[in-house]
């Protein structure tokens, strides 16, 4: 028998391979050379300093939304609302960044904390409804996404600006952008946010694996009723899990607002950073380290895809299909396990 831990690493790897193979088959089907296609992808992600900087830049919010979804998952909750939490976090960070004047050592942390709090608030509502009334968090978080999208557009147009479609740029003292990093990577939009994301990942690992709070959260995720009999407050843990999850996603929004863009535009549609976080978390097995690795993979795929049309003539949207298929294979891990066990048995 395979050990469970081994399955947890083998299944994502197989899923990624199957996804990439399916992508290659699609390329073949449309008359492209898959080797050239994937070479263009890798070149677009690592080919030069600029591409590399952009890849890391894309990985940054993915780590954070991935952590957001993963954290909720560990407590038995599905946070589809990361998208909305990203948007409110982004807005909150830019709001603090544009309106307050303070030295960097105060301004930047405040902007980050307020962004996390805003995301946390957006997670608090579904958490509260789940804990007190037993309402399914998936539907509430979907609804909260739309409220965040339209509300933030409204606030940008009518409160932060006078009928403009973008806010002002955040003050230097609240910016994560760094000339040194930009020069290092031929003026990509790489910023210090990657450090924030990695610290957040370490924080999640420590909280979940090394503290009593984390133990309770995981316990609630495994078995709600047993946790209750053991004297844990299930409702409190559900709310806490959603708030922390929302906080991670809010920080992801701050990465965009204080780092990548330095301002917030109105959005006609979702940013997809939050939705992609679902894929990242699933592939990462809902663990902190796994999420970081998965975020790198998806960052490479997304940024590399931009080079596929010029490098190999392949529409970059192919990568979206590959990512969707990877999620499918991870979700259907039951069948992958089944096949693996079959092979194992025949081998004996």
């Amino acid at each position: 028998m395979f050990a469970n831990r081994m399955f947890n690493t083998v299944v994502p790897v197989i899923s990624v391979l199957l996804g990439l193979i399916a992508g290659a088959i699609i390329m073949l089907g449309f008359g492209y050379n898959p080797i050239k296609g994937y070479a263009a992808l890798l070149d677009g992600a690592f080919g030069n300093a600029y591409f590399f900087g952009e890849t890391i830049r894309q990985v940054t919010p993915y780590i954070l939304t991935g952590l957001a979804v993963a954290f909720a998952f560990r407590a038995g909750l599905f946070n589809i609302g990361a998208e909305g939490q990203v948007i409110v976090g982004w807005l909150a960070a830019v709001w603090v960044g544009t309106t307050i004047e303070a030295p960097m050592i105060i301004h930047l942390p405040i902007a980050l904390i307020v962004a996390a709090l805003a995301g946390g608030l957006w997670g608090f509502v579904p958490g509260l409804l789940k804990a007190k009334l037993g309402v399914h968090e998936v539907i509430i978080t979907i609804m909260m996404n739309y409220i965040a999208l339209y509300l933030s557009n409204h606030l940008i147009r009518n409160v932060l600006t006078d009928k403009q479609d973008t806010t002002d740029r955040v003050a230097e003292s609240a910016s994560l952008a760094s000339n040194w990093l930009m020069e290092l990577t031929s003026y990509s939009r790489l910023h210090w946010g990657i450090l924030v994301a990695l610290v957040a990942a370490a924080f999640m690992w420590f909280l979940l694996e090394k503290t009593t709070t984390g133990f309770e959260l995981r316990s609630v995720g495994y078995n709600r009723h047993a946790s209750e009999y053991a004297g844990m407050k299930v409702g409190k843990n559900i709310i806490l899990a959603m708030v922390i999850s929302g906080g991670f996603a809010g920080l992801a929004g701050a990465m965009e607002g204080l780092g990548t863009f330095g301002y917030m535009p109105t959005h006609a549609a979702f940013t997809n950073i939050g939705f992609d976080g679902i894929a990242v978390a699933l592939l990462g097995g809902n663990a902190a380290l796994g999420t970081v690795i998965a975020a790198f993979l998806f960052g490479i795929l997304k940024i590399g895809a931009l080079n596929m049309p010029t490098g190999a003539g392949v529409p970059g949207e192919l990568v979206e299909i590959v990512i969707a298929l990877i999620i499918f294979f991870v979700a259907s891990s039951y069948i992958i396990r089944w096949v693996l066990l079959r092979f194992k048995k025949e081998g004996n």
Partner: peptide, 18 residues
């Protein structure tokens, strides 16, 4: 395949758009 139905639905959304 007994996949998580919500996850499978999310994948459907990604796949259709892709």
């Amino acid at each position: 395949f007994r996949a998580d139905q919500v996850v499978s639905g999310v994948a459907i959304n990604f796949l259709a758009l892709g």
